[in-house]
Design a protein around this nucleic acid. Structure first.
Lengths: 336, 336
DNA sequence: TGAGAATACGAAAACGATTAAGAAGTGCAC
DNA sequence: GTGCACTTCTTAATCGTTTTCGTATTCTCA
């Protein structure tokens, strides 16, 4: 590895001058700068990030917390898409992405915060995690710039998909398509689930709908079996819904299976709608009508925000950034 | 941040002693070691990875090359699963995962190799990339321990899904189900595609099948439109195939759409099979019969191998590790 | 012409760890 | 009592940068 020392000897200047020339300091002559840079380039010089980090306490490295109990994180289309755009946006700005070690079982493991300090992450993005975990709290309460995705702490920036507007728009669309008996199988155990459910009720009220209690059922996210079971319950009702909303697209397929097995067809006999807008749902018939979340923007905003917190801590607001999704009109909700 | 110096003052010993105590060197007294460790723990000491890296030239950090022209990498179920298990396996062994910056447009960007040197990755895993890229070649030809997934260079370790056996097993299964007129829409532009196609022909010969040339069509991986178009061609033939193999599960849904639009049903009128075993294909009816690749083992083996190359370079073979998949029997291939 | 400002560069300390070499203390044999 | 071997700890150099402060040279203008 060619170091600054090598360049300094080659150029007949001191190491300090090389450093300053490469970092474009004011107090180095134009010609000297040019020469040093040329030699550096020609010798294939690249800085040593460890040395730089040691000296500056900056790593140009972002930690991403992405924990998956059931290994559903990385393979979860929504979060994978967010991570992907997060990665692109960070890389464009010269930051690298490192996963925060979420292995729980290693002897001598560090807590999330300890790991972040160990690696010297300039900032952290919490994408997919149990937000009640004490270690997560420790992390968000630290002085490390942090943004969360889809969860609101009172002292960190949050990038949120607009679940309230999303549910409102989706439900309104379904209403416009003529549906009045609309069931909602809602997700569980997260603030996102609560927000969507609240928005559902609010929109129901706005639209003047009368939704019986038995139309509202819980089912864990991405749990096709639970969605299947809940769907069966709905289909057993005397007054069946004409449209069923699901916690997410993946779970929706569980519901579609339940419907098909009764010999009913989507959307001719009953309509369904998902939530998320996963890619494959646009390639399988019937294409899912769903609320397509803007994962690209979510990831990008998260990266931009954390980098802004790092580079302009004074002028960056601790705020909640809301990213709107849009109704994707597939073919699973029929006009009646 | 509490450093060794802090511990050394607290314990009344030198920094060197602290370092050696924490690293369990022989020449430190048992009692001293105990005391230092206790104080370190109590003071919340954790090492500074940058300082350690600077001194030791080891970072305990692995670079992962995961480039996505069309952003299909991270959202590609197969690669996402591989990455996920890769991550878990590496974390268990105390290594972190950092993406190699694949942003092509940044001014002053580094090549892949330069970036690896800059970050001081101990090893590199190449998951998803254009293997003909000169920068990739530069990387694999460097002295950095490297493993590739699903691509064979002559001087690096490769973890390969057993596409030959996979195709053989899948085709044999379909044969056993009574199919004789079997079409294959094969992937393009990769060694994997070539291997599968070769295995297809070989198995065809073994089974004594007579497959007309027009049953073999190309379509890019994960390209539902191309699969759709190819399927239409097959359905236009006088002698239709009774079963169609697709490049992968995702593309398969393009084919299924083409079939449905002609009023034909899968699998009653025509059977289809995918390749990969993506999760959702087991949740949508008809469940896809496919070759389920063992992504978990692929990722794990890759991590183990690269760590072994790092830690026991002498005794680690440069080899090709083949991971077998298995036929997943869904409901898309019917017995005839 | 000479004082002060401006410019261009260098010396050296520092970041937090590792490690080779050396030094002090102890025990034991002769 | 001296020499030698151990054990246990310290000193000091080092990794590759950044940065403060100092110095030498040139420029400016009264």
């Amino acid at each position: 590895m060619v170091s600054m020392k090598d360049i300094s000897s080659a150029c007949g200047v001191s190491v300090a001058t090389v450093s300053k020339a490469l970092n474009n300091h004011e107090d180095i002559g134009a010609e000297t700068k040019r020469r040093i840079r040329e030699v550096a380039k020609q010798m294939g010089y690249f800085p040593n990030s460890a040395a730089k980090a040691l000296k500056t306490n900056r790593t140009q490295n972002l930690g991403v917390l992405f924990e998956e109990d059931d290994h559903s994180g990385l393979t979860h289309d929504y979060f994978a898409c967010v991570l992907d755009s997060l990665k692109s946006a960070a890389e464009e700005k010269g930051y690298d992405i490192t996963f925060i070690n979420s292995c729980r079982t290693r002897p001598g493991r560090m807590s999330f915060l300890e790991h972040c300090r160990y690696r010297g992450f300039d900032g952290v993005i919490i994408v997919c995690v149990n937000f009640l975990d004490p270690e997560v709290l420790e992390l968000v309460n630290s002085d490390i710039p942090t943004v969360t995705i889809d969860h609101l702490f009172n002292n960190t920036c949050a990038i949120m998909s607009d679940n309230v507007k999303g549910m409102h728009d989706l439900l309104s669309y379904i209403y416009e398509m003529g549906h009045r008996r609309i069931a909602y199988i809602h997700g569980t155990e997260s603030s996102v689930a609560q927000r969507r459910l609240a928005s559902f009720y609010k929109t129901v009220a706005e639209l003047g709908l009368d939704i019986p209690d038995e139309y509202i059922l819980p089912a864990a996210y991405r749990d096709t079996k639970a969605a299947y079971a809940a769907t069966e319950k709905l289909l057993d009702l005397k007054k069946r819904p004409t449209c069923i909303l699901y916690p997410d697209d993946f779970a929706c397929y569980g519901g579609i299976n339940a419907i098909s097995e009764r010999g009913l067809r989507v959307p001719d006999d009953i309509s369904v709608a998902g939530f998320d807008g996963i890619r494959i749902a646009r390639h399988i018939e019937p294409k899912l009508t769903t609320l397509k979340q803007d994962t690209n923007l979510l990831g990008r905003r998260a990266a931009e925000k954390v980098i802004s917190l790092i580079e302009q801590p004074k002028t960056t607001l601790i705020e909640q950034i809301v990213v709107e999704g849009e109704v994707y009109v597939g073919g699973s909700v029929k006009k009646i």
